[in-house]
Amino acid sequence: MNIVGVRIDGRLVHGQVANLWTPKLQADRIIVLDEQIINDNIQKSGLRMATPRTTHLSVLDYKTAADHLLNDRYGTQRLLLVAKRPKEFLDLIDEGVKIDSINVGTMSQTNTTQMITKQINVEQEDIKVFDELNAKGVHLFAQLNPSVEAHDFMKLLNDKINR
Rank of each mutant, 00 (worst) to 15 (best):
L70G: 01
L70Q: 04
L70T: 02
L70P: 05
L70N: 03
N71L: 05
N71T: 13
N71Q: 02
N71F: 06
D72E: 13
D72S: 10
R73C: 03
R73V: 07
R73T: 12
R73Q: 06
R73G: 04
Y74P: 03
Y74I: 04
Y74E: 03
Y74V: 04
Y74S: 02
G75P: 03
G75F: 00
G75Y: 01
G75A: 00
G75D: 00
T76Y: 05
T76W: 00
T76R: 02
Q77R: 09
Q77P: 03
Q77N: 06
R78S: 04
R78D: 02
R78C: 02
R78I: 02
R78M: 01
L79M: 13
L79I: 15
L79Y: 05
L80K: 10
L80V: 07
L80F: 15
L80E: 09
L80W: 08
L81D: 05
L81C: 05
L81Q: 02
L81M: 09
V82T: 08
A83Q: 02
A83K: 05
A83I: 03
K84A: 09
K84G: 09
R85W: 06
R85Y: 10
R85M: 10
P86K: 04
P86L: 04
P86Y: 01
P86C: 01
P86D: 02
K87T: 10
K87F: 09
K87E: 08
E88H: 04
E88D: 11
E88C: 02
E88K: 01
E88A: 09
F89W: 04
F89S: 03
F89K: 05
F89Q: 01
F89T: 02
F89Y: 03
L90Y: 15
L90W: 11
L90T: 10
L90I: 11
D91W: 01
D91I: 06
D91P: 00
L92W: 11
L92C: 12
I93T: 12
I93G: 00
I93H: 06
I93Q: 13
D94C: 11
D94R: 15
D94T: 07
D94H: 14
E95R: 13
E95L: 10
E95A: 13
G96Q: 04
G96K: 09
G96A: 09
V97Q: 05
V97L: 12
K98F: 15
K98P: 00
K98V: 13
I99Y: 15
I99M: 13
I99A: 11
D100E: 14
D100C: 14
D100I: 13
S101P: 06
S101A: 15
S101R: 14
S101I: 14
S101N: 14
I102D: 08
N103K: 11
V104D: 03
G105S: 09
G105K: 06
G105A: 12
T106S: 11
T106G: 12
T106H: 15
M107R: 08
M107N: 08
S108L: 15
S108T: 13
S108N: 15
S108I: 14
Q109H: 10
Q109C: 08
T110R: 01
T110V: 07
N111I: 14
N111S: 13
N111R: 09
T112I: 13
T112C: 00
T112K: 15
T112W: 06
T113M: 03
T113F: 06
T113E: 03
Q114W: 07
Q114N: 01
Q114E: 13
M115N: 08
